[in-house]
C-alpha cells in the first residue's frame, strides 16, 4: 500500500514536471509574440484623448446577409442536425406537441413564411425552437436576436448568424429599417422566430409581450404561430451558472392572422393570450385550458400579482405541475461500502 502510494506521488510529481516543461515551452514560443507592441498589437490610448465613435458595424447594423447564402446554409444544416440537435436532446429531452395545428399551412404551396412567437425563459429556447420547428420552415428559419446582446462583438455576432441564423433586432422598438429588411426576407420565404417578451425571464415567470411579433406580422402579412415552451427555465434559466438537464415540452398553437382593422396592440394581446392558453394546456389539458381561455382565467404566464418570496413559492408550485416537475431520474452514486 505504502509503495503504491509513494509511486502515485512520484507519478504526480513527474506529471507536474512534464506540465511545467510544456507550459514553459509554450511560454517561450509565445514570448517574442508577447514582446511585440504596437503596431503588431492594438494601440493603447493616451490619457485625455477622445476617440470618436466609429459608425458601428455592430448591433442592429450587423451585416448578416451572408448567413442566408448557400455556403452558410449548408454549414448551418450540418450544425443544426448534428451537434445542436444532440445537445438539445441531451439536456432538454423535448416533447413536441401541436404540430397538427400547422398542417393546413403546410398544405399550401408554397408554404407561407411564418412568425413563431414562443415565450422565453432560457438560452436553450432558441436551439430548442430551431430543432423543434417542422419542415418546411425549419430549413428557412431565422431567429430575431437582441442586437445589443448577440451582436455587440464581431465574433459573437458572426457565430450567432452562422449557427442560429440570428438576425439583429432591437429589444424595445423594432425600427423601420429592420422591419423593412425583415419584410423583404419574409417575402423571400424566410420564417422567423421572435420572442415577443424581448428577453429571457429574469425570475422564472414570464414577462409582458412587446409588440414586435404583432407589428412584424402586420407589416409582412405573415401569420403568427404562438408557441409555449415549458421547462427550459429550470434547465438553464437566467442567472444559472451551468445547465441542469431536464425535460421540456414545446406546444405549437394555431396560426393567427391580424384581423380586419385590428391594431398592433390588440393583435399583440391576442398572441399573448394564445401563448398563455397554450401554457395552461401544457400544464393541465386542452379542454381545461380552452374553457379558462374563454373566461379569460388562464393562469397568467407573468405569474401572480404579489412580489417577494410568495412569487418564488408560486413559481415552484407551478413548475411542479409542468414538465420540469418530472425530473429525470438521476443515477445516484452511493458510497461504496463494500
Amino acid at each position: 500500500m505504502g509503495d503504491k502510494r509513494s509511486l502515485t506521488v512520484a507519478q504526480l510529481r513527474r506529471m507536474a514536471k512534464v506540465g511545467d516543461v510544456a507550459s514553459s515551452a509554450v511560454q517561450a514560443t509565445l514570448k517574442p509574440v508577447r514582446a511585440l507592441g504596437f503596431p503588431y498589437r492594438a494601440p493603447t490610448r493616451p490619457k485625455g484623448v477622445v476617440v470618436p465613435e466609429q459608425p458601428s458595424k455592430l448591433g442592429a447594423d450587423f451585416d448578416t446577409d451572408w448567413a442566408r447564402k448557400a455556403p452558410a446554409r449548408a454549414a448551418r444544416k450540418v450544425i443544426n442536425r448534428g451537434p445542436m440537435q444532440a445537445l438539445v436532446q441531451a439536456i432538454a429531452s423535448p416533447e413536441v406537441v401541436g404540430l397538427d395545428r400547422l398542417a393546413d399551412l403546410k398544405e399550401l404551396d408554397p408554404a407561407p413564411a411564418v412568425i413563431f412567437a414562443p415565450n422565453h425563459y432560457s438560452h436553450v429556447d432558441t436551439p430548442l425552437m430551431i430543432t423543434s420547428v417542422p419542415e418546411p420552415w425549419r430549413s428557412k428559419l431565422m431567429v430575431a436576436a437582441a442586437a445589443d446582446y448577440f451582436f455587440d462583438k464581431k465574433l459573437k455576432g458572426t457565430m450567432a448568424a452562422l449557427a442560429l441564423n440570428a438576425f439583429p433586432i432591437e429589444r424595445e422598438v423594432t425600427t423601420r429599417k429592420s422591419s423593412d429588411q425583415l419584410r423583404k426576407l419574409v417575402d423571400q420565404g424566410w420564417s422567423l422566430v421572435i420572442f415577443p417578451e424581448g428577453g429571457r425571464s429574469p425570475d422564472g415567470w414570464g414577462q409582458e409581450f412587446k409588440g414586435g411579433a404583432a407589428y412584424l406580422a402586420g407589416r409582412t402579412g405573415a401569420p403568427v404561430v404562438p408557441v409555449f415552451i415549458d421547462g427550459t427555465g429550470s434547465i438553464y434559466g437566467k442567472g444559472m451558472k451551468r445547465p441542469k438537464p431536464g425535460k421540456t415540452k414545446v406546444v405549437f398553437g394555431a396560426p393567427l392572422w391580424p384581423e380586419e382593422g385590428e391594431n398592433t396592440r390588440r393583435f399583440n394581446s391576442r398572441i399573448e393570450a394564445a401563448v398563455t392558453a397554450l401554457g395552461d394546456e401544457a400544464l393541465t389539458d386542452f379542454w381545461t385550458a380552452r374553457q379558462r381561455a374563454a373566461n379569460g382565467t388562464n393562469p397568467k404566464l407573468t405569474g401572480p400579482e404579489f412580489n417577494g418570496w410568495r412569487r418564488q413559492w408560486a413559481l415552484a408550485e407551478q413548475r411542479k405541475l409542468g414538465k420540469a416537475g418530472q425530473r429525470r431520474r438521476q443515477n445516484r452514486r452511493w458510497p461504496d461500502l463494500g
Partner: peptide, 27 residues
C-alpha cells in the same frame, strides 16, 4: 472634422508616426 490638437505623451501613448523619405517609422 475634429480640430488639430496637442497631445501630451504619456506611458500609454503609442509610438508616433514619422516619415522617412520613401518610408515611415514609428518612434
Amino acid at each position: 472634422p475634429r480640430p488639430g490638437f496637442v497631445l501630451e505623451v504619456d506611458r500609454s501613448t503609442p509610438p508616433s508616426l514619422f516619415w522617412r523619405g520613401e518610408n515611415f517609422s514609428l518612434e
